[in-house]
Simulated scan of single mutants.
Amino acid sequence: MRPLLGLLLVFAGCTFALYLLSTRLPRGRRLGSTEEAGGRSPWFPSDLAELRELSEVLRDYRKEHQAYVFLLFCSAYLYKQGFAIPGSSFLNVLAGALFGPWLGLLLCCVLTSVGATCCYLLSSIFGKQLVVSYFPDKVALLQRKV
């Protein structure tokens, strides 16, 4: 029970940190003001139309707050990679649109490596104990086969 609680605590903490980062934006042209039609917090795109809209919003916002957009992008990418949430291919395309093809490629390679390492560490710290405690027969069968 403790590994599951620990994993949920880490997930909740990272989710809360990403939520704060995306809602406490410095004031900008479109992202910071909710009076305008386009003013809203950043979101994870689920299709190409949303990706195009998010790219335009972040490109305009990046003109004034380049470091904050970089921090927000890196945090969102690491969150998705670290918890193995599908859909980071949209973020790869967004990186190319925001930072250019070469810097976007380099950034995605580094963030994918760091995020996969975080995912591995989370699974080694919490996942092994969870799998062994909830599926002991399956683990024993797999160990015999290996």
Rank of each mutant, 00 (worst) to 15 (best):
L58D: 00
V93C: 03
S113M: 12
L54S: 02
L20A: 14
G87C: 05
L107A: 09
E64V: 09
L107Y: 11
T15E: 11
V10W: 05
L31V: 10
E53A: 14
S33R: 15
L72W: 06
D60F: 13
L106T: 02
Y19S: 09
P45C: 04
L105P: 08
A12C: 06
L103Y: 03
E36G: 07
S41P: 00
F99Y: 04
F83Q: 15
K63T: 06
L51H: 04
E50K: 15
W43D: 04
L72Q: 07
G13N: 10
A49K: 06
L51V: 02
E53F: 05
T112N: 15
R59T: 08
R30E: 12
S41A: 07
R24K: 09
P101G: 06
A76C: 07
D47V: 09
V10S: 11
Y61M: 10
L9I: 09
R29F: 14
V10T: 14
Q66G: 00
Q81Y: 12
C109I: 14
V57D: 09
L72E: 04
E35G: 02
I85C: 06
Q81H: 10
R29G: 00
Y19W: 11
F73E: 01
G39M: 02
R62T: 04
F83Y: 12
Q66C: 01
Y68I: 02
